[in-house]
């Protein structure tokens, strides 16, 4: 086969061009630290990595929202604890005054104490979180209970997402504090009995107080369950975020050592190609001298 000057030039150009492209790619990998810098580098890998990245960002946002939700449930739990403590004290008063002879002044003083405890419960039931009534249900822009303990909010609780496809109900105070068998009905009955100096009615109020206390206890348990659900979802997502980020790294991170090796190797090859061409030129000059 004849070897012409044009072939030599074409061969050199072709080698320089392909090495130049390899050099650019390797240098981009070294600079960015990633071997997939655009979809066209590896469409399937890029799409998979993008899916993991999107999921991680979505989970991060949901973890933030869950943190807010946990804070909401913690506020609710504190309020229920406070109300439960007040109910406990009121129940003690009822049990002490339901038997044995009691003077009107003793009953009147007890009535004042129970009114104070009822106010504590009212404050707890009207607790706010970020300006919204914790126990107001979906109607949370106003106080959940009026001064008499009547429920003003909505018995419908708001449902919120804690993980993709996973929702949880927030709270409504109606079932916790309100209703005929609720804590406010029981403490109001006790307050009325004590104010009226009706010792028999005080005794009769004890069962209602116990039911109200049980209702609060169940509400606390329910809040705890929901917090656990939120924690569970949050833990799952936090682990998933780490796992997703790891997967993105595994898929796209460049092998820096190998990339640097490629840069050096390609540069060496380019220099050699130029040297070989220079040698061929020298040989040609010798022929001209002949």
């Amino acid at each position: 086969m004849r070897v012409t000057d044009q072939q030599r030039n074409m061969s050199l150009q072709s080698r320089l061009k392909s090495n130049d492209a390899r050099l650019s790619k390797s240098m981009e990998e070294v600079v960015s630290g990633s071997r997939v810098n655009r979809s066209s580098d590896d469409p399937t890998t890029h799409a998979t990595a993008a899916r993991f990245k999107t999921q991680a960002v979505r989970y991060e946002n949901m973890v933030d929202q869950n943190s807010n939700l946990t804070s909401y449930f913690e506020t609710a739990e504190t309020a229920i604890n406070s109300a439960s403590g007040a109910m406990g004290e009121a129940l003690n008063i009822a049990q002490q005054l339901s038997s044995g002879p009691q003077t009107p002044s003793q009953l009147s003083a007890a009535a004042k104490a129970v009114t104070g405890l009822k106010q504590t419960m009212l404050d707890a039931a009207n607790t706010q979180h970020h300006g919204a009534a914790v126990f107001g249900g979906i109607d949370d822009q106003n106080p959940a209970f009026d001064p008499t303990g009547a429920f003003l909010g909505s018995s419908t609780a708001r449902r919120v997402q804690i993980a993709p496809g996973e929702t949880i109900e927030m709270l409504s105070g109606d079932s916790t504090f309100g209703g005929a068998n609720g804590a406010f009905a029981a403490i109001t009955a006790l307050e009325t009995a004590l104010t009226n100096g009706d010792q028999a009615a005080v005794g009769a109020a004890i069962d209602g107080m116990k039911a109200g206390e049980k209702s609060l206890s169940m509400a606390r348990q329910s809040v705890g369950d929901r917090m656990n659900a939120v924690d569970f979802a949050t833990n799952f997502m936090e682990n998933a975020i780490l796992s997703d980020k790891d997967r993105v790294g595994e898929l796209t991170d460049a092998d820096i050592a190998s990339s640097i090796g490629n840069v050096q190797g390609t540069m060496g090859t380019m220099q050699l190609a130029l040297q070989v061409t220079a040698r061929v030129g020298e040989t040609l000059n010798s022929i001209f001298k002949l």
């Binding site: 655009r38 979809s39 890029h46 960002v57 949901m62 933030d64 939700l69 919204a132 708001r158 919120v160």
Partner: peptide, 27 residues
């Protein structure tokens, strides 16, 4: 797709995330 990112998809995700934040306090 500058910086290899589908910005519109990212914006859609941000819209849904903002909706998620609103869902606990829609008012």
């Amino acid at each position: 797709f500058p910086n290899a990112e589908a910005k519109t998809a990212v914006r859609v995700g941000e819209l849904f995330d903002a909706m998620g934040a609103l869902s606990s306090q829609p008012g």
